[in-house]
Amino acid sequence: TIDDAFRAIERAIQAENEGRYREALKHFLDGGEMIVTAAEKEASQKVRNLLLHKGKEVLEWAEHLAEWILE
């Protein structure tokens, strides 16, 4: 659900702030994927587009974090 997705993102932010970057990455990926999944089930085109945009933002952040971890 969207609530689960945002809880995962909150955990990711907390982990990132505490320097637990790999854990943060996992939570960002989980949250982003949950948002995209919820968007695919959404009946309203406007809400679907907003959710897809937010999911994409979260997944892009996860990608940047992963690249930073690997440096």
Rank of each mutant, 00 (worst) to 15 (best):
T1E: 08
T1F: 13
T1L: 15
T1V: 08
T1C: 10
I2G: 02
I2R: 03
D3V: 11
D3T: 12
D3H: 14
D4H: 09
D4C: 11
D4M: 11
D4I: 08
D4A: 05
A5Q: 01
F6L: 10
F6M: 12
F6C: 12
R7L: 13
A8R: 07
A8C: 12
A8W: 10
A8Y: 10
A8K: 11
A8P: 00
I9Y: 02
I9R: 00
I9V: 05
E10Q: 10
E10K: 11
E10V: 09
R11C: 10
R11K: 12
R11H: 11
R11Y: 10
A12H: 02
A12Y: 03
A12R: 02
I13Q: 04
I13S: 01
I13H: 04
I13E: 03
I13L: 07
Q14E: 08
Q14I: 12
Q14L: 09
Q14P: 00
A15C: 12
A15V: 02
E16L: 15
E16M: 15
E16N: 13
E16K: 11
E16V: 15
N17I: 14
N17Q: 09
N17G: 06
N17P: 01
E18V: 05
E18L: 05
E18P: 03
E18M: 07
E18A: 05
G19E: 02
R20T: 02
R20G: 03
R20C: 09
R20I: 03
Y21Q: 01
Y21E: 00
Y21A: 01
R22L: 13
R22A: 09
R22M: 12
R22V: 12
R22N: 12
R22I: 06
E23F: 02
A24K: 00
A24R: 02
A24N: 00
A24H: 02
A24V: 03
A24E: 02
A24Y: 03
A24T: 11
L25F: 04
L25W: 10
L25G: 00
L25P: 00
K26Q: 12
K26F: 08
K26S: 06
K26E: 08
H27I: 05
F28A: 07
F28Q: 02
F28I: 04
L29Q: 08
L29T: 05
L29I: 08
L29R: 14
D30Y: 15
D30M: 14
D30N: 10
D30L: 15
D30P: 02
D30S: 12
G31W: 09
G32E: 09
E33G: 08
E33F: 14
M34A: 10
M34F: 02
M34H: 03
I35S: 01
I35E: 04
I35G: 03
I35K: 01
I35R: 00
V36E: 07
V36R: 08
T37F: 07
T37S: 11
T37N: 11
A38G: 04
A38L: 15
A38W: 11
A38V: 09
A39K: 03
A39Y: 07
A39I: 10
A39E: 02
E40A: 13
E40K: 15
K41G: 07
K41H: 09
K41Q: 08
E42N: 05
E42G: 04
E42Y: 10
E42T: 09
E42R: 03
A43Y: 07
Q45F: 11
Q45R: 09
K46T: 13
V47C: 13
V47L: 10
V47Y: 08
V47E: 04
R48V: 05
R48G: 06
R48F: 14
L50W: 15
L50C: 15
L50P: 03
L50V: 07
L51T: 00
L51R: 00
L51D: 01
L51E: 00
L51Y: 04
L52N: 03
L52F: 07
L52A: 03
L52E: 04
L52G: 01
H53P: 01
H53Q: 11
H53K: 15
K54I: 15
K54V: 15
K54W: 15
G55D: 02
G55H: 13
G55P: 01
G55W: 14
G55M: 11
K56G: 03
K56Y: 11
E57N: 06
E57F: 11
E57T: 09
V58T: 01
V58Y: 06
V58G: 00
E60M: 15
W61D: 01
W61S: 01
W61Y: 15
A62I: 09
A62L: 11
A62F: 06
E63G: 09
H64W: 12
H64R: 13
L65S: 01
L65V: 03
A66L: 12
A66S: 08
A66I: 08
A66D: 01
E67P: 01
E67M: 15
E67T: 11
E67W: 13
E67H: 12
E67K: 13
E67A: 14
W68M: 06
W68G: 02
W68F: 12
W68E: 01
I69Y: 05
I69M: 08
I69F: 07
L70D: 08
L70R: 11
L70N: 09
L70C: 15
E71H: 12
E71M: 12
E71K: 09
